[in-house]
Nucleic acid binder design. Sequence first.
DNA 1: TGACTCTATTGGTCGGACCAATAAAAATCC
DNA 2: GGATTTTTATTGGTCCGACCAATAGAGTCA
Lengths: 240, 240
Amino acid sequence: MTQAFAPLKRNRLSDQVLTQIQERIASGELRSGDKLPPERELAESFGVSRGAVREALRSLERTGLVSLQAGAHGGAFIGQGDPGLIGDSFRNLYQLGSVSLDALTEARLWLETTITRIACARATDKDLAALTANVDEAERLLLAKRYDDKIDIHIEFHNLLARATHNAVMVMLMGALMDVMRDFAHTAGGERHDLTIKARRRFLAKLGARDADAAVAEMTEHLESLHVRYRDRMKARPQR
Amino acid sequence: MTQAFAPLKRNRLSDQVLTQIQERIASGELRSGDKLPPERELAESFGVSRGAVREALRSLERTGLVSLQAGAHGGAFIGQGDPGLIGDSFRNLYQLGSVSLDALTEARLWLETTITRIACARATDKDLAALTANVDEAERLLLAKRYDDKIDIHIEFHNLLARATHNAVMVMLMGALMDVMRDFAHTAGGERHDLTIKARRRFLAKLGARDADAAVAEMTEHLESLHVRYRDRMKARPQR
DNA sequence: TGACTCTATTGGTCGGACCAATAAAAATCC
DNA sequence: GGATTTTTATTGGTCCGACCAATAGAGTCA
């Protein structure tokens, strides 16, 4: 059968510049902290205009691969990547309609279940202390009626829990999903009751006792009620 | 205590253009398929040069938010995002040393465990058929001694399994991790034995029987041996 | 010595020109 | 009249050359 040929993107010069620099990073030739030649030199050695080089550099900057700084000893420095981009990608995919709220919250529930189990096994006293401090802070904000400020603290709870797995990738994955969740939470508005706080204290007790099944049960129950709430609220404010 | 202030990025005009367009997308004012005014018009209405607008548009293009096409009725069209960017982000973070191989494979193991459990409950006959076909194809390539071609088929197995969860976000998360794994696999080279294939047939049998615990056990065993193998190989070729 | 100024380097922006791709409109041919 | 070819207007892609803005180091002066 006739195969569907590759889309065959136009060969933009700026893309070729971008690709070549990317390859040097991938091959390890360019490493974090290294400095690229000035734009004018790059333009000359690539045999293209400065504008083309700039477009490439700006694209690289956007993906956290390089950071540009002006000035005498400035230039384009190889960066360390940007974990936040993962969350940005999801947010974009959601905003543009490529993923649904249901899929997001479902995946988040599964991920959080896993995280809870791992955290149960690995959380240190320091982790538990950080989680407790987070709930205390949330309670303080609730009493101060700063409901919207409370949202970010509540979100941070999940990131702290992910951190208790002591796995950087898991922290990033959870962080990405929570980035999107943050939008929902702010749209829905901050809760005015202390049910979440009470649930979290119960959860932390289970976690401290290393009772994974009980902790997961507590978490699941809370998240599922939250899912229903978000779904109702977002349905009331269609964004498309 | 004195808070660490925000890094305070310079206010580049091209960034402001980028931000404004992004905001219109986030607010829902610009939706997938819409067309932006031509660069020249944008430049005029923003009161900046065409170059500044171009840089912004190229950045947006890189993140899949818009796609640019030349020609009479061309222009900048709002896209649908690019799921591949999540994988790219991880690859960059790994290449730049912000995440370790251990963290990646560990997270991957956890994710895959979850996926196996969900797939056990949700996989349709069609999903199972696709997985079986994938293993058949791998076996065919093995017999043909096309070991390197086999790698991509083996990678695809995991993506197919993720697809069996019928959750788009899970597919993306798994796809992102497998993007990075693909690099490892190609560096390590294709296996010349059929242990993986046999293990997969056993796995599929468990999956078809909806025996989640057995399927997870099979998967875990396989992945852990793989992890050891990658770690040894990558240690032999330090990339930094 | 110390604070200030100058200067060279490098990213950021501009404007205007031309090329390349593309689709609609116009002209041409059968 | 209809199909085909040519023209043309629109729009992204590139280039050039100039100037501005930030910055670190050298040089200067009290």
